[in-house]
Simulated scan of single mutants.
Amino acid sequence: MRIPRIHHPELLSVGQDVALCEDAANHVGRVLRMSAGHALQLFDGSNQVFEAEIVQADKKSVRVKVLSASLDNRESPLNLHLGQVMSRGEKMEFTIQKAVELGVNVITPLFSERCGVKLDAERLNKKLGQWQKIAIAACEQCGRNSVPEVRPAMDLEKWCTEEDDSLKLNLHPRASASINTLPQPVERVRLLIGPEGGLTADEIAMTARHQFTDILLGPRVLRTETTALTAITALQVRFGDLG
């Protein structure tokens, strides 16, 4: 059986005896039905992996002993910050999951004029917690040992005005530049993906004032979740660690 990879929210050290968090304990104890003596692999966001052994397990709690640690850096040399105007339902969850698998470092959910998501503060906070859990689960699955941050949702213009020395890119169906025409090298990118209906003319003009470069992916119009993953993949191929 493949050794499960489990995220631990606090820094680990060899020799520690630690209790898994509630979600991890539920997965290990209830779903996988693992018991004392079984092996786990833990990661804590420090780009290390920790071999561990279960010392106690039941349906409510799981304790493990950390046996060894090793550095396992699977991060891309390209630092990617995705600004994604929120999409409805499972589309946003899908985008976050796949963006993490493709190596994005930070994800900021955004509101824009044509954003189709309307949430009050309480529901939005629940969504943010859910999206962060999706990012953690994606790391557990794909082998990343550093968990991307899903930031609190914010207004598009506020995000665009944040000070950042990254190359700023905005996908636009009538742009003349492409990812292949961007000058090398590029180490940091701030990537803006708009809503299904696209950004308004005023929003596009606003991004230009804040030094965003309009780029074109190709001749076909893509859905917002397809656009994000296609752009991230193309950037990782050109400047990162894919291909």
Rank of each mutant, 00 (worst) to 15 (best):
Q141H: 10
Q141Y: 07
Q141N: 13
R144M: 10
R144A: 11
V147C: 08
V147T: 04
V147W: 04
V147M: 08
P148S: 07
E149P: 00
R151F: 09
P152N: 10
A153M: 01
A153K: 02
M154R: 14
M154Y: 02
M154D: 03
D155T: 08
D155P: 04
D155I: 05
L156Q: 00
L156A: 01
E157S: 09
W159E: 01
T161M: 12
T161F: 07
T161P: 03
E162L: 15
E162K: 14
E162R: 13
E162H: 13
E162Y: 11
E163P: 07
D164Q: 09
D164G: 11
D165Q: 12
D165M: 10
S166M: 08
L167S: 12
K168A: 08
K168Y: 02
K168V: 00
L169M: 10
N170Q: 13
L171W: 05
L171Y: 05
H172N: 12
P173H: 14
P173D: 14
R174T: 07
R174M: 10
A175W: 15
A175T: 02
S176Y: 15
S176M: 15
I179G: 03
N180S: 11
T181I: 05
T181P: 01
L182C: 04
P183S: 12
P183C: 09
P183Y: 09
P183R: 15
Q184F: 13
P185D: 02
P185E: 01
P185G: 05
P185W: 01
V186S: 05
E187W: 06
E187F: 08
E187M: 09
E187C: 09
R188D: 01
R188G: 02
V189N: 04
V189L: 03
V189M: 04
R190N: 12
R190W: 02
L192V: 07
L192G: 10
L192W: 06
I193W: 03
G194E: 03
G194H: 04
G194I: 01
P195Y: 02
P195R: 07
E196R: 09
E196K: 09
G197T: 00
G197W: 02
G198Q: 05
G198I: 01
G198P: 00
L199E: 02
L199S: 04
T200I: 02
T200D: 04
A201M: 11
A201C: 08
D202H: 09
E203P: 00
E203G: 01
E203N: 03
I204Q: 08
I204W: 03
A205R: 06
A205E: 07
M206D: 00
M206C: 11
M206T: 07
T207Y: 05
A208K: 06
A208Y: 02
H210S: 01
Q211S: 12
F212L: 07
F212I: 03
T213E: 13
D214M: 12
D214W: 14
I215A: 07
I215F: 06
L216T: 08
L217H: 09
G218D: 15
P219Y: 11
P219D: 15
R220W: 13
R220T: 15
R220M: 15
R220P: 13
R220C: 14
